[in-house]
């Protein structure tokens, strides 16, 4: 990832067509060692971007899916509570050996202090995705997916990790990343991220692609499809996006549709065929009905 041209070509090799803007963002994030915050409507390839990045740099991908109620214990680390208890039970018998010969309460106490930290050591630490990403020896690609689904508290928790690439664990101290991971955060814009978080990130907005780019993407993913049909179907989807729909079809849906048209051995966009396969593109009955009534004009546009 040392130049924008290299990024574009190596991402393309792994089946991800990126525009110059996306390539610039990846380049900057890698160069400045800053997390990349990717926003955009669902299905434009935000998650795919991180996955491909992991392939390109050949490092493990650590993924953290955010949801409401996600907290430290599930994202960062947890103490192996059961293991700790089990060990205390097993070591109960040893206690007399340790304390043997101690005179008085104070003496036993001092002896015990020598062991007290044993139960809060790395052996009892259960690393969760964030900590795991920092532990990777050769670095990693950390994907924090759909950050907007998580709570505000969680965002604040991320701040230390994203700016300094380190985690503070009260019982142990600060653990810094062995090698700085390439961090990608994605957001669907259901809630605006806090300023503090945005400030630390390189911001990238991925809109729906234009006709040419989308055709290239379809070509990449469904190479068997006929050129003419490809142009038509992409045009149709582009026209659909300009309508007032409940859920606009995304790139992934265009690809699905292209695949299904291929399966059906379609050669051109007949209106019957479109009506029958519309449910691949549109996910709401209302949208389908809406489109059906305007089908002729949309087909003409495409």
């Amino acid at each position: 990832m040392d130049s924008i041209e290299n990024i574009t070509s190596s991402f393309e090799k792994h089946g991800y067509i990126c525009s110059e803007k996306i390539a610039t963002a990846i380049f900057l994030a890698a160069k400045l060692e800053k997390p990349l915050l990717v926003e955009g409507p669902p299905g434009v390839g935000k998650t795919e971007l991180a996955k491909t990045a992991a392939y390109v740099v050949d490092k493990p991908l650590v993924r953290l899916q955010c949801y409401e109620g996600l907290d430290e214990a599930k994202a960062l680390y947890e103490w192996k509570y059961s293991k700790q208890l089990l060990y205390t039970q097993l070591l109960k018998e040893q206690l007399s050996d340790v304390l043997g010969g101690a005179i008085g309460f104070k003496d036993s106490m001092t002896r015990l202090h020598a062991f007290s930290d044993a139960f809060y050591s790395r052996e009892f630490l259960e690393p969760r995705p964030l900590l795991r990403a920092m532990h990777e020896k050769n670095g990693s690609v950390l994907l924090i997916d759909e950050i907007d689904k998580a709570d505000f508290e969680f965002e604040s928790l991320l701040l230390e990790i994203l700016s300094d690439y380190q985690v503070s664990i009260p019982e142990i101290g600060t653990i810094a990343a062995t090698k700085i991971p390439f961090v990608v955060l994605t957001s669907n814009d259901t809630r605006e991220a806090s300023d503090a978080l945005k400030r630390r990130c390189i911001h990238l907005y991925i809109p729906f692609p234009d006709q040419a780019l989308e055709e290239r993407i379809v070509l990449e993913k469904v190479p068997q499809i006929d050129d003419n049909l490809r142009k038509k179907l992409v045009g149709f989807v582009q026209a659909l996006r300009s309508l007032d729909l409940k859920k606009t079809p995304a790139i992934s849906e265009t690809i699905d549709w292209a695949k299904s048209l291929l399966l059906l051995n379609a050669e051109s966009l007949e209106s019957d065929l479109v009506v029958n396969t519309l449910n691949v593109l549109l996910k709401f009955e209302e949208d389908i009905e809406n489109t059906k009534s305007n089908l002729a004009s949309i087909l003409k546009q495409a």
Binding site: T24, L28, E39
Partner: peptide
């Protein structure tokens, strides 16, 4: 400092990504 000054669009995108944080 890491971007190519010859390309206006690159500078523009680079600045946009670091300065403007919403759509």
């Amino acid at each position: 400092s890491v971007l190519n000054f010859e390309k206006r669009s690159q500078i523009r995108d680079g600045l946009a990504m670091t300065l403007a944080k919403t759509k």
